[in-house]
Simulated assay, not measured.
Amino acid sequence: MDDLNAVATLLAKPEPSAETIARSRGRLQDRMTPGRARRRRVRLLPALGMAAATAVAAAVIVTSVSPPAAAPVSGRDVLLMAAASAGHIPQGTGTYWHVTRTWQGLDTPLVQESWTARDGRHWSRNAQDSTPGAAVQDPDPFRLMGAEIGFEELEGLPSDPKELKERIAALPREDNAVLSADGQGELVSPLIALITELPTPAEVRSAAFEALAATPGVKNAGPVEGGQELVIPLSEGLEIKMVVDPETARVARATILLTAEGGAALSKSYISVTTDWTDELPQ
């Protein structure tokens, strides 16, 4: 089954070190501040006359307001900085894990929501084939590579990128929920699921970002509202665009969204996603 069919069914380099992450984060912060002045220290020698000193001072002023053009920020750099940020951002607390998806319909914006308790109970609003606007309890569990996965299993995933990929690859899974690229070892779609909708612990999210940074062909299309627009190949002829804020380690929106329930949502434009913990169930 090719990847386009796999997505339709769902609707139904070496690993970098911590030092590499820190270095990439520094480079990215420098590059994302294009107007930053770069001053050079000039020591005037006693032999210089007033005219020479004035000329040197003028040269200093010109240098300080004319920095060289910022170098492009790579997709790998963005993901590595997000990895560094993710490890220091607490997930939060609450009774229910709340996910909201928003995208543009034919006439109006469409919104889907879900709430999941730690004991596995699940509620959704505006899910496929449900009554519009109604929040109903349903049996949809969290899934990764088609395999059911709960809060405890997510919290037990490795925080090392290589070990994380090995654990994901070893999960019992449904073949029709696996893209060919994932079957070949890149594991792009489950890594994206871990950083978007699933209630993944901070250390595991960091490892997922770092592992994703090693994916061949990741590109940065440039800054957009909400972060940096990345293009990530899923397989030949199929790619995902997503907007990542490297400072908050959040995926703001994506063209293909791998859902917490193991499905996929596609849009010609973008699907926005927000996640949080809450103590309130929908009325």
Rank of each mutant, 00 (worst) to 15 (best):
E261W: 05
G217P: 00
P199L: 03
K219W: 02
V251S: 06
A260K: 05
P216F: 14
N176Y: 13
A221N: 12
E236C: 02
A207N: 07
L234N: 04
L164R: 02
A264C: 14
V273E: 00
L157F: 15
R250S: 03
K219A: 15
R250V: 09
L238I: 12
Y270Q: 10
E261H: 09
E239V: 04
E155T: 13
N220W: 01
L198T: 10
E203W: 12
V244T: 02
A260Y: 02
P190L: 07
Y270L: 07
R173Q: 05
E197Y: 05
V273S: 12
V218W: 07
K241Y: 09
I271G: 05
I232C: 13
E229A: 15
L230N: 05
R250G: 03
P201K: 14
G226E: 03
E229N: 11
E186H: 13
S269R: 11
A265N: 03
L164N: 01
I240S: 14
L191R: 01
A181E: 13
P223D: 02
L198R: 03
A208P: 09
P201N: 08
V188P: 01
W277G: 07
M242I: 06
L187E: 06
A181S: 15
V251H: 01
V224L: 09
V218S: 03
V188N: 02
E197R: 02
W277F: 14
R167I: 08
V188H: 04
G262Q: 05
E236N: 13
T215A: 12
L171M: 10
L154P: 02
E155M: 14
A211I: 06
E203Y: 03
L157Q: 01
A169V: 08
T255P: 01
G217E: 08
T255Q: 11
L179I: 09
G226K: 02
G262H: 07
L238A: 08
V188I: 14
A207F: 07
A249G: 08
L164I: 12
E225K: 13
D182I: 08
A254L: 04
V251I: 12
A170W: 06
S267Y: 05
G227M: 13
K162E: 15
K219M: 08
G183C: 08
S159Y: 02
A252G: 15
P246R: 05
A260N: 11
K219D: 12
P216K: 07
E210Q: 12
K268T: 05
A207H: 03
A252V: 10
I240E: 07
V218K: 00
D182R: 05
K165G: 00
A254R: 03
L171Y: 12
D160L: 08
G156V: 10
W277Q: 07
K219Y: 00
A254S: 15
A214I: 03
